[in-house]
Design a protein around this nucleic acid. Sequence first.
DNA 1: GTAGGGTTAG
Length: 628
Amino acid sequence: MRHLYQIQAQVTTNPIPSVEPNRIAVKLIGLCAAHANMRHGELIFTHYLTSTPNIFVFNALLKAFAQNNDWRSTLCYFNYQLLLPNAPDPDEYTFTSVLKACAGLAQASEGEKTHCFVAKYGCESNLYVKNSLIDLYFKVGCFGIAQKLFDEMDVRDVVTWNTLVSGYCLSGHVDEAKCVFDRMVEKTLVSWSTMISGYAKVGNLEEARRLFREMPERNVVCWNALIAGYAQNEKYADAVNVFRQMQQEGGLAPNDVTLVSVLSACANLGALDLGKWIDRYIRRNRMKLGLFLGNALADMYAKCGCITEARRVFDMMQERDVISWSIIITGMAMHGHANEAFECFKEMIAHAVKPNEITFMGLLTACTHAGLVDKGLDYFHMMAPAYEIIPKIEHYGCVIDLLSRAGRLDEAEKLINSMPIKPNAIVWGALLGGCRKFKDAERGQRVVHRILELDSEHSGSYVYLSNMYASMGRLQDAAKCRLRMRDNGVTKLPGCSWIEIGNTVYEFFMGDHSHLQSEKIYLMIKELRWKMKLAGYRPKTDLVVHSIDEEEKEDALSVHSEKLAIAFGLISTSEGTTIRIVKNLRVCNDCHDATKIISQIVKREIIVRDRSRFHHFKDGRCSCNDYW
DNA sequence: GTAGGGTTAG
């Protein structure tokens, strides 16, 4: 950046007489755009306004904003140009930038207005402008107009065709896009990448992969399209594998877009080692920690259990938006640091960043994990009046959960019955959780019926009912219930735990014997069971429903996926190493008790991320204080 | 001028 200031200083104090000043302005603004420093670009532009900027200077500025995805500023300066008495008339170059901005904002009204100006200034016949118009109409959802413009063109280039393919992909009409794609005589890398991401967006990864294999040449964008496709469809391990493949065979360096997708995969897998490697890669290559990359990195650290590191990244970022603040607030919440989350929110408001619905989700979860019911209700009630955010079903779900966990079941049920949105199975499920915890069988039964009306495959309801009957000694009813569950094809999502050892993520299911070191793992479990018993641990066998005897119940508990992963962690890492586990479900009561004792016996810190929060086990205690 | 990226209850 420094040389940019030097150039500008030199130009302003020491103008080169033979070069026309406007040419220098264009060059400088272009440099600012390349450095993503448009504040400086604006300064230069205002400086040149005192002389007489020509159309090249205006176009350079609009193009620079458009390049940096700053659509609002693009439109703002275009309107300024129209109002300024001595400003030059816009030309086809002006319109390509302005139309791009309208498309970026997906604003139909602004787009139509610009279309009128295009006609007024006689730029309609230009190919670039036509292509931009087609793109614009697709992005504001007017496929008919876009297709008509395309049909009426007598000269089309490959960009015209690509725009049509991209337009159909964006609107989810992949099959139409494929038809256009197949009709294309000349295809570029852009055509292929568009189709790959089009298939990825609708979840058809087989087709995306097939095209990827077929394409004649590859660049970093098409790799990114495939990696992002897997990451966005929750195929995180595949995303990481494609990334590794890219490094092995591509000879292509990953860029910030690649890393953002891979970091998001790491965050979801809890793959801290790979995440740390990417952090080092970013520093080694002096990559700019922009909004996207910084946010992805901070989120990765937060979701991998390193909230301090997450905060460090957050503090290092030069620019922060709502998403950055939401990430850090949600991160604090997941780690049970409710007060820090509230402090961050205050800081955010002090920085004049407007919170969004996700920020409030973070605050509400912070309250849930700390049992701060009234604080949570305060946040819930301030959303609409103070910040114009209408609570969505997710927020209601969170508040019902908050009330239910605290045993305020009457209030929770009243809120469900009075909410302006139709409650879904998840909202009722939150109340059901409360009924289970506080043994309110009457309400529980009522709730189960409401849930099954909405979702006949809600496994939690069947399990609840069957458990309830079993605990009342009505074993026949319990059996009937499980039978009904089976007949309806309801399957409980199998519990699964991951642990990352030496850059590989290992996956364990309950009672899993598929691991190569299975024998050693089960020996370790046997040893732990013995030591745990001596330390006073009693398995919570009442959680196991099946009608089997006590000893078998203990066995069933002892091979929960999380215990297998912990045992594997213990035999695969050196003494004292922290063990990090990621689970797809919430940690069960028995595993929670067991892990506390294990942390004491083996003198290790064990960090478990379950589907909604972190548990830091140390010296026989858990950071959640047994409230989760 | 056309392709690729980050936060969200149970």
